[in-house]
Nucleic acid binder design. Structure first.
Lengths: 146, 146
DNA sequence: CTTGCACCTTAGAATCATTCCAATTGCCTG
DNA sequence: CAGGCAATTGGAATGATTCTAAGGTGCAAG
């Protein structure tokens, strides 16, 4: 399975592209995000990372997450005033927040829909990002992305 | 111009529907939101309200805003980690965040687009709210909604 | 009226995610 | 090895928001 290698390479590559180094901390943080894609908060990432690297600090986790975001390897997800969550899914997708469980689901966005949405912008508005968020009740037995 | 009356009535009506009272504070906060629709933060609302009612407290402004939101007279708008903004526009609309100016613009959402977007949800997902947010560069001379 | 009571407002303290800061530490280049 | 920049770290600081406890306010029943 070349996925792990690919990811590590991707990380090193992307970091290098931005003139940044591939430190162990950054690698572990990124791995943690890839391993369990349940949109964890920084605190949750911190807890998971500590299992493998007990000396890491919360500040570093924030730094690493911010770095990964700036390299376009990770997206942030915000729901109202809740703590920011992190998502390594790079395909265009929306987020569905299940009010009952608090869980977040990725919803793929077909290009056609994205186009339709962009088309609502009046002349002169130039969007470089679109964020679509649903809230409601999710299907119970969705194949989850653990 | 019956607009002012209509608004006041609407407010009193909606509050009553929820078993709440139409207090002077709630009225002023609502008026402030209607008067200048620039998506102010709670702090900004506080500042504007104090002009008319110097004794009001920030806590009350938060309370009033929360009350108005719960009556569906006002919507909250969140951009990343920025302070929450408040919007009295009740029509279905998206928000466009101008990265250059920090200003927020309402973008009307035609029902057809809303349908298209809802259609991306897999069977079993039942959304009771959809939020669409753009970021980018806005047209410079948009007729603003002051 | 006037008493009771539920609803509101208020100031200030508390919370909590996130950022900042200043001090190392690590790593590469010369 | 020396210099220097990039990263990490722990703890302090920040800032929006919420909580708390202590009065107000207004209506309804007696």
């Amino acid at each position: 399975m070349p996925a792990a290698t690919l990811n590590a390479d991707t990380l090193a590559q992307r970091l290098a592209d931005s003139g940044l180094r591939a430190t162990p901390q950054r690698e572990v943080v990124y791995e943690v995000l890839l391993k369990k894609r349940d949109h964890p908060t920084a605190d949750e990432v911190f807890a998971r990372v500590k299992a493998e690297r007990p000396t890491i600090s919360l500040a570093t986790v924030y730094n690493c997450l911010e770095t990964l975001v700036s390299c376009d390897l990770v997206r942030t997800v915000n729901f109202e005033r809740e703590p920011t969550r992190y998502c390594p899914n790079l395909r265009p997708h929306a987020h569905f927040h299940d009010d009952a469980t608090g869980r977040t689901h990725d919803i793929d966005l077909p290009p056609a829909v994205l186009e339709k949405v962009k088309a609502v912008l009046p002349r002169g508005f130039d969007a470089n990002s679109i964020e679509i968020t649903f809230r409601g009740k999710a299907a119970k037995a969705v194949a989850s992305n653990r």
